[in-house]
């Protein structure tokens, strides 16, 4: 199942990057495009191994940069940092809770663009920034937060569809069964 989960996460990352580039509706409507990679990273870091986290950060970041004017590889680092932080604290996180998923998605989707822009400025690039960038940041954070619980639901469904269901254990034990039958009555024996 592990490799299947990794493949599903990477496939979803590929589709997410494509959709972000192809669909302009949200950008035209609210002035910002939502990034789904941080939401996927939250899911991957809480549900998969460190290799999946590293693969998602590398491939997701490179795919994103290949369709963008970003320098190649700049998006990898923020995704990796988010993935490593969440993966190292996964025992303490209630991953089944929708609220926890939303909050983690919010934090990841807010941090990823911030780290990327800081990295761009550090490299001497000149991204388009202004007061309206705060609005875009808010939309990206909220959009990513809303997408995170959906990610969990989607992947849980995929998991259920491709794996055998675990049988529920019963308390029935044949060796401790009380056998009731019409045996010989002690008064008549």
């Amino acid at each position: 199942m592990n490799w299947l989960n990794t493949m599903a996460i990477l496939l979803m990352a590929f589709l997410a990057v494509f959709l972000e580039s192809y669909f302009r509706g949200l950008r035209n409507l609210v002035g910002a495009q939502i990034d789904l990679l941080p939401a996927l990273m939250v899911y991957a870091s809480l549900s998969a191994g460190i290799s999946t986290v590293a693969l998602l950060a590398t491939l997701g970041g490179l795919w994103f940069d290949s369709l963008s004017a970003n320098p190649l590889g700049i998006t990898v680092l923020p995704l990796l940092v988010i993935g490593l932080v969440l993966h190292s604290g996964r025992e303490l996180i209630l991953r089944e809770q929708r609220y926890a998923q939303f909050m983690l998605g919010l934090a990841a989707s807010a941090m990823a663009p911030l780290f990327t822009v800081l990295a761009l400025l550090g490299l001497g690039a000149e991204p388009l920034l202004g007061w309206w960038s705060l609005w875009q940041w808010l939309i990206m954070a909220l959009g990513g937060a809303a997408a995170t619980p959906l990610c969990f639901r989607l992947f849980d469904r995929v998991k259920r569809a491709f794996t055998y269901q675990k049988l529920a254990e019963t308390s029935f034990r044949p060796d401790r069964e009380i056998k009731r039958d019409r045996g010989p009555h002690p008064d008549y024996s």
């Binding site: 580039s21 950008r27 990034d35 970003n70 991204p127």
Partner: peptide, 14 residues
């Protein structure tokens, strides 16, 4: 036009 820059801080298209 087949696509736009997925990042909000550039204005490029494919």
């Amino acid at each position: 036009v087949i696509g736009q820059d997925p990042a909000n801080w550039w204005r490029t298209m494919l």
